[in-house]
Design a binder for these strands. Sequence first.
RNA 1: UCCUCGGUAGCUCAAUGGCAGAGCAUGCGGCUGUUAACCGCAGGGUUGCUGGUUCGAGUCCAGCCCGGGGAGCCA
Length: 497
Amino acid sequence: MVTISDLSKHVGQTVTVGGWVYNQRSSKSLVFTILRDGTGMCQCITSETDVNADVWEAANTLTQESSLYVTGVVQKDERSLSGYEIHISDMKIIQIAENYPITPKDHGIEFLQNNRHLWLRSKRQWAIMRVRNEIVFSIHRFFQERGFMQLDAPIFTGNAAEGTTTLFETKYFDQPAYLTQSGQLYAEAMALAHGRVYTFGPTFRAEKSKTRRHLTEFWMVEPEMAFFDLDMDMQLAEEMLCYIVESVLKNKMEEMEILGRDISKLEAIKGPFPRISYTDAIELLKSDKTRDMLKDMQLSRAEELKALQTEEKEITAEFNNAKKGRKFQIENRKKEISVRISEIEEDLRNIPVWKESVENLKWGDDLGGSDETLLTMQFDKPIMVHRYPREAKAFYMKKDPENADLVLCVDVLAPEGYGEIIGGSQREDDIEEMLTQIKKHELDEKAFEWYLDLRKYGSVPHSGFGLGIERTVSWICGLHHVRETIPFARTLGRLYP
RNA sequence: UCCUCGGUAGCUCAAUGGCAGAGCAUGCGGCUGUUAACCGCAGGGUUGCUGGUUCGAGUCCAGCCCGGGGAGCCA
């Protein structure tokens, strides 16, 4: 048996491939079967004149997603999409699939999510999973090459503390337990044992967020480094992101093409990334530059909307007298137009809201989603916003020695509107300061005794960050929603399949 | 929790308050080195649920259920 990905090495040879029927077209004396085997797709041709009656009969009974072994000669052929095809001499059907629900046509998201277990077989989803794998593998490579230890944090935790997010509550035998929202605190302990570590695992947040950026269960990489300050932390985050993007561009071009990703946007991801202090970010958001950008955006969206509406009118008028093929084109174009129009209408609704949000923004406020969008729109690389006001951030972040109102933290915002993909900080290493913060945040000091021990016995400057895998995959693939970046997404209200 | 949009055939969607339809998928037939092929014929419906208004409700009203994406919060 050989795989479709290896066909180019077997031109002229007779091979056997096990796979599934992705799509099939038949005619009087020819059957064209698009076969997928997990490694790729290949067109297979069964010709009535070349095979015996049984094989010919078998080829004509195939349905979408039927499983089979095919045997035939590999040929290079321009007419085949992959460039290679198999001229079938023999075929062994394993199972004829009945009425496969996902046809090669349009489907709504609800239907596709209900059939996620099958949707994963579709071309786009296949490509996304392969990019996800590349990203995950490149992250491990990046850290392992730099001497980091991969160690895992527990998933059950005993205290609901840390404040901010809503946790999933469960039972640990007869005591209450929670699913982890971050491995960071444990990573700190491990970093003080091993120097440089990273965790790679699932995290859970019970927030009732229904947006394209949220999952209730998602994967996070959290490096944690002893003897590391915030600048080193930012440098590491930047190098890691460049490394990931570079690997994808190097190894997953075929998948990027399937996804229709604009590669030039990714090729621009090279260090150094802009580093902007929170204070400067506020200033930039309230500047004339941002106001002008919003105004331009409003004008250009309105113009685009008008052009699209005109085009829609024209092709609608053309529709009734059009031939079948043209009708098909028109319907597709109308779908595209309607999607784009709803995007534009959303923008046009949003722009005044964003404007107002920016006008009301004052130093000390946390940056909202729209503020982040407005910031990232002004750059073509990820940006690193650092040193936020202490009030807006978590208790464990180190106080800025140069300004007690700030903490040494960084959020990395991905370009093209993808928003926050990394949150990190230098950790507070002074035990007195940490105790003050625990009290201020009204956290249970007892639950943090072990954490405080890290400051008691050989405290050192240390830093780390967390990278959201799904948001990263979504950004690199240029997707509309993170739910397509993980095999089985857990979103608000969805636990099936 | 709030705002907003939606739920009609297996799928994607139409249908001034007046006979529930089209394309795709499926089945049958035809045809072509086909590229989501194409052409012809056929089968396919508790219009999310409950109630109300009306001579008449897919359409209007109320409540509920489910889903989309946005706010808050975050990766």
